[in-house]
């Protein structure tokens, strides 16, 4: 392969940073311009060229994502979220309850036993929400705030983890979904039996993974990989069982609580070979939760003021 061929191949590799749509329209033209601007003896892209192509590619990807997110039906996504999220959380807790009631096997200490209160606070409002949505949203906000405080107290005493923070944020997202969206009744209308199947499977799957995770029955690395695979499968399955405009929004909403868990898992893996798990990250997460709870409260108050009949 001659010098230009090698350089062209390297430029093409860098163009992979751009979204496929962009490459299809401008790819060949960009290669022509890059080769025309390169000196005759150039063998590889300069660091400045590489940085420019990577930066341009990321910016194009961001713009393309934003355009697609702009087409999302957020009302429907919030409606499905207000139904699906607590169902997933309930799935996680069902696995925990079953495992705890299992008469065989060693005794284990649950670092997250405080879950039961918020679990009920999530499950009950959803049932109630079919009739009393505003009250259900209020209960979810209260549960998120209460659980944030419990979690902060526990974080100050012991080391805490990403799952605790994720659960906390999930409550806040649930509060926002109940407050800002049209409610679970609309969510049930949109969801098909396949969506319910995905939601149930993902809740139970995440619950099972979290059991292994806490007991280190399998090494952390594979556990994290399995969890990532489950999350990816959930995303794909949701995209297949819901209209695209709803699925994209729902995946974004469900991804918010998954972030602390993912970051913690990466930190755990990084620290596993050194001196343990201690990290200030989860403590910072609770600040985010407080902001989310504050936003949810603000929206609830605004909605209440709007729905109040004017004198």
């Amino acid at each position: 392969m001659n010098g230009e061929g090698v350089l062209e191949r390297r430029y093409r590799r860098l163009l992979a940073w751009f979204p496929a749509d962009h490459r299809r329209v401008y790819g060949e033209e960009m290669i022509g311009v890059l080769l025309a601007s390169a000196p005759d003896d150039q063998q590889r892209p300069s660091p400045a060229e590489a940085a420019d192509l990577i930066g341009g590619g990321l910016s194009a990807r961001f713009r393309s994502t934003m355009t697609r997110m702009g087409e999302v039906s957020w009302r429907d996504a919030l409606a499905v979220c207000s139904t699906a999220l607590p169902a997933m959380l309930l799935g996680i807790l069902v696995v925990r309850w079953v495992r705890e009631a299992w008469p065989f096997g060693p005794e284990w200490t649950y670092p997250l036993s405080d879950y039961y209160l918020p679990a009920l606070a999530v499950a009950l409002p959803v049932l109630v929400a079919f009739r009393f949505r505003r009250e259900a949203a209020g209960a979810a906000i209260l549960a998120a705030a209460l659980f944030s405080m419990l979690a902060i107290r526990s974080a100050l005493r012991f080391s805490t983890d990403g799952l605790e923070a994720s659960f906390c944020i999930a409550l806040a997202v649930q509060a926002i979904a109940l407050t800002a969206g049209p409610g679970p009744r609309r969510g049930v209308e949109i969801m098909t039996w396949k969506t319910w199947l995905v939601v149930a499977a993902s809740g139970l799957g995440t619950g099972a993974i979290s059991q292994y995770y806490y007991r280190a029955l399998i090494p952390t690395g594979p556990a994290v990989l399995v969890a990532i695979a489950i999350l990816a499968a959930v995303g794909i399955a949701l995209a297949l069982t819901l209209p695209g405009r709803v699925a994209r929004g729902l995946i974004a909403l469900i991804a918010i609580p998954a972030v602390p868990c993912a970051v913690f898992a990466v930190q755990f893996m990084a620290a596993a070979n050194s001196n343990g798990v201690g990290s200030p990250f989860p403590n910072l997460v609770f600040l985010i939760v407080f902001v989310l709870v504050g936003a949810a409260t603000g929206m609830a108050l605004r909605q209440q003021r709007r729905s109040r009949p004017t004198a």
Partner: peptide, 12 residues
């Protein structure tokens, strides 16, 4: 201008 910046701007 470099190619990445130029074509991102042209697309926009």
């Amino acid at each position: 201008l470099r190619a990445g910046t130029l074509y991102a701007a042209l697309d926009r």
